[in-house]
């Protein structure tokens, strides 16, 4: 009885857990890496995992894509999460483009895209200013 419950619980939720593992990897990359490009890659990973969460919400087992076929017995998956995620993907690529453009400029000014080296340069600027 308990066994049955736990296995069905896993089957019912494994999808969410896989998505969460991906989110964690993405978030870990953003927080732990000092390379600016790598941070953006991590951010993309994190966001894509969130997209998967939404799409999982919309899925109905045995359903098909929400493009109407005219067959009255057809079961369609929920279209609303798809719409939301289409918007979110666009927002994601917009953020990526902006972030990368900033990186290009930062590299031109600082000569590096490593966070700690940038911090050193900024400290140097601070010191010169107060001197």
């Amino acid at each position: 009885m308990f066994d049955d419950f736990s296995s069905s619980f896993i089957i019912q939720h494994y999808n969410y857990w896989m998505v969460i593992v991906l989110m964690m990897v993405g978030l870990y990359i953003v927080v732990s890496r000092g390379n600016l490009v790598k941070k953006i890659v991590g951010l993309n990973l994190f966001q894509t995992a969130v997209f998967m969460l939404y799409i999982s919400v919309g899925k109905i087992i045995g359903g098909t894509a929400p493009i109407l076929t005219g067959n009255p017995d057809e079961v369609y998956s929920n279209p609303l999460p798809h719409v939301l995620i289409l918007t979110a993907i666009v927002v994601g690529v917009a953020t990526t483009a902006l972030g990368l453009a900033l990186i290009v400029r930062i590299n031109e000014r600082y000569g590096t895209i490593e966070e700690d080296e940038i911090a050193d340069i900024e400290q140097e600027i601070d010191r010169q200013e107060s001197a």
Partner: peptide, 22 residues
């Protein structure tokens, strides 16, 4: 020039915030 790194850090923090919200 520090405006660039300020904007970048804001972008990272802001996007994480927005993603949490989503």
């Amino acid at each position: 020039q520090r405006a660039l790194t300020a904007a970048y850090n804001y972008l990272i923090m802001g996007t994480i915030g927005a993603t949490f919200f989503v």
